[in-house]
Design a protein around this nucleic acid. Structure first.
Length: 352
DNA sequence: TAGGCGTGGTC
DNA sequence: TGACCAAGCCT
């Protein structure tokens, strides 16, 4: 590799490493299979990439298996009931992804004859597919030369070239570096290789530089700056909000639940009726109980942290008659696992 | 364009 | 234990 330009030598070194160290994933076609002519299923690649947005591989595995078992093709998913998809997504977070997942599946069926487009620009127009996911699908599923730039690649590029300008402002610079390294041959394997490298060797804390295939060309390692890169602009502190939720159960066991509005926090998900969630804690916002009943405040509280605020909920519980009006979910159809985590925590508190 | 949008694991 | 972090997108 001596005297070979980085843009030739570095991708080759990384692909050689990937041939040996590629991680197994349910949606992945490994380097050996790929060389034997096996093509990935674009539907499964797309599904995995949506789930993997801001979410770890370990968390995604089980959700992925349940989704592709229940809806094996994009046509099956497009025909699904919205509530079934939202319930299956419950607990995975960022619920706009689930709403866009359905919109995207239906767009593929309606506008692309049920086949995912390979073209980057066409993918970018689909709901829930941004620059990263368009590049990931076109490269991994169709082996087209596009460059993925996720948190892993940002970190690897910042270290490889010892870039100290903070994210996210420096993102375009890192993209240029990443694009220059993307090879024309095996761009799909290469995309997965850089991300595997970032996830396993070039980790945020204590990177394993000693066993890194790029240890020799890495500028941060040469300077000893790998542990302080990438730099990030400081985040704003999270405020604390307070609220009250009301858990009404009929004598026959049915629970009073509501489907939350499509837009906003936990949009489209099931939840308990309750107050607004407000920054001040005095007085505690109680809202209006959904039905007149003998409400009992539970001891303790629900604590939950969202992306941009901490939440402390008081939980009110009541037994109500079977003829109480409202959208009660029958006991046999109620599954706590259909609820987003913060709502499931309130249920768990009520169960003692 | 910067902020809204979840959750679980790690240290 | 609180802060950071994870294969980002939308408005």
């Amino acid at each position: 590799m001596r005297d070979m330009p980085d843009t030739i030598a570095l991708p080759r070194i990384l692909l050689d490493w990937y041939d040996i160290h590629a991680r197994e994933m349910p949606w992945r076609v490994g380097p050996a299979q790929r060389k034997a002519g096996v093509q990935p299923d674009p539907y499964r690649i797309w599904m995995s990439e949506i789930m993997l947005q801001q979410t770890t591989v370990a968390t995604v595995r089980d959700y992925f298996q349940r989704f592709v078992t229940r809806w094996p093709t994009v046509g099956d998913l497009a025909a699904a009931q919205d509530a079934d998809v939202m319930a299956e997504w419950a607990g995975l977070g960022y619920y706009a992804r689930a709403r866009n997942l359905l919109k995207c599946a239906r767009a593929v069926v309606d506008e692309h004859a049920g086949e995912f487009p390979a073209d980057h620009a066409a993918l970018l127009k689909l709901p829930g597919i941004g620059p990263y996911t368009a590049a990931a699908v076109s490269s991994i599923a169709f082996d087209l030369r596009h460059t993925v730039l996720d948190g892993n690649v940002e970190r690897v590029m910042a270290r490889l070239y010892d870039v100290h300008t903070p994210l996210p402002a420096v993102k375009p610079v890192l993209m240029e570096r990443a694009e220059a390294l993307t090879p024309a041959k095996r761009p799909g394997d290469y995309a997965q290789a850089v991300m595997d490298l970032g996830a396993t060797i070039c980790s945020p804390k204590s990177p394993a530089c000693g066993i890194c295939p790029w240890r020799d060309p890495c500028a941060a390692r040469a300077m000893g700056t790998q542990n302080e890169l990438p730099k990030k602009t400081p985040k704003k502190p999270k405020p604390v909000r307070h609220g009250t939720v009301y858990l009404a159960q009929r004598t026959d066991g049915a629970w009073l639940l509501e489907t939350r509005p499509e837009k906003g926090l936990l949009g489209g998900m099931l939840g308990w009726p309750g107050s607004d969630w407000v920054d001040t804690s005095a007085p505690l916002p109680k809202g209006t109980p959904p039905v007149a009943a003998d409400w009992q405040a539970l001891a303790g509280e629900v604590r939950h942290t969202f992306t941009h605020f901490h939440l402390i909920l008081t939980v009110q519980l009541a037994k109500v008659p079977n003829d109480t009006p409202g959208d009660f979910v029958p006991r046999t159809r109620f599954r706590p696992s259909d609820l987003p985590t913060v709502m499931r925590k309130a249920y768990d508190l009520a169960q003692g």
